[in-house]
């Protein structure tokens, strides 16, 4: 991959990496994330077994973070695209179907603004549909 020349849109904390390792071991599969919007537990990233959440042409792939594809709906991305996200973990009890919840922890997003320079060199996005097609070809 030549992605290193690009500025990533999503980073990950060490605590979140540990949680992903634990979940991968428990579920025996790769994982994926979809950033939620809206009320209650909205604005939080949701973690699923890879493929459990159906992405499509209206989803944007922001990159792969620690081996997990990270998606967001196109509408929401329009308002988020100038910020770099860091996937982190906090203690807490979210609702939703995100698979880490029974562990008493919750994935969360911390954000920072990209600099003007970074904005010109961001990793190109793809749609969920394009990612699915790429996965089929692999």
């Amino acid at each position: 991959m030549s992605d290193n020349k690009y500025v990533p849109r999503v980073l990950i904390s060490d605590a979140a990496k540990e949680t992903i390792d634990t979940l991968k071991k428990r579920f025996g599969t790769d994982l994926m994330f979809h950033q939620s919007g809206g009320c209650c537990d909205g604005s939080s990233p949701m973690c699923f077994e890879k493929g459990d959440f159906k992405v499509g042409a209206s989803d944007i792939w922001l990159g792969s973070v620690y081996g997990c594809d990270f998606f967001m709906n196109q509408d929401q991305f329009e308002y988020w695209k100038h910020t770099q996200l860091t996937l982190d973990i906090t203690a807490g009890r979210g609702s939703s179907f995100s698979i880490e919840i029974p562990m008493g922890i919750r994935f969360m997003i911390r954000s920072r603004l990209f600099t003007t320079e970074e904005l010109e060199n961001l990793i190109p996005t793809k749609t969920g549909e394009e990612i699915l097609e790429e996965n089929e070809l692999k």
Binding site: H34, C40, D41, G42, S44, F48
Partner: peptide, 13 residues
């Protein structure tokens, strides 16, 4: 369902 968009989509799925 009352909640957020990702779980809403999953439930619709």
């Amino acid at each position: 369902f009352t909640g957020e968009t990702t779980t809403g989509r999953l439930i619709m799925q």
